[in-house]
Computed example of a mutant assay.
Amino acid sequence: MRDIVNGLLLQRESILLAHRSPARSSYPDTWSFPGGHVEDGETLQEALVRELDEEIGVLPTSWRQLDSFTYNSGKANFHFFAVDHWQGKLTNLGDEHSELRWVNLGVAHEMPKLTFPIYTDIFAALFQS
């Protein structure tokens, strides 16, 4: 089973969403979060730090684990982390995402083409906290 981390960057009442490039083999042309696969020997937290650095050029300095869910008949576990503080300039690096966008938590559930329906539950929980 693969573990996948997702960094949910929060700023004021907004969350950072990443549009997955249409050329991606997994979940193309959908809105998700920066993150990726946990490598052998890595903790979830180490993978979070590495993935956010590789994909958006930031080093998370404060985060908390939120929910996790299993997808694809138990083939993948997705782990979500709310990231409250980071260092570095937010930059879309590489070709995994075609766009990064700050979206108000109150309307994030209305984004078209969210990668997974469970995102709406996560947005609601973050909005109420």
Rank of each mutant, 00 (worst) to 15 (best):
M1W: 04
I4S: 12
V5K: 03
L8V: 03
L10C: 10
L10P: 00
E13H: 13
S14W: 07
I15L: 14
I15P: 10
L17I: 05
S21M: 02
A23Y: 06
R24F: 06
R24I: 03
S26Y: 13
S26M: 11
D29A: 15
T30N: 11
G35R: 04
G36Y: 10
E39C: 09
D40H: 12
L44F: 06
E46H: 07
A47K: 06
L48F: 10
V49S: 11
E54M: 15
E54G: 10
G57I: 03
P60I: 07
P60Q: 08
S62A: 14
W63K: 04
R64Y: 05
L66F: 05
F69I: 10
T70S: 14
Y71T: 09
G74R: 12
K75W: 08
A76I: 09
N77Y: 13
F80R: 01
F81I: 05
V83R: 05
V83G: 07
G88H: 14
K89V: 09
T91L: 15
N92E: 00
G94A: 06
S98N: 02
L100Y: 05
V103I: 15
V103F: 14
L105M: 11
G106H: 12
V107G: 08
A108R: 09
H109Q: 07
H109T: 00
E110R: 14
M111N: 05
M111L: 14
P112G: 04
L114R: 07
F116Y: 15
I118P: 01
Y119N: 01
T120F: 02
F123L: 08
A124L: 12
L126Q: 04
S129Q: 13
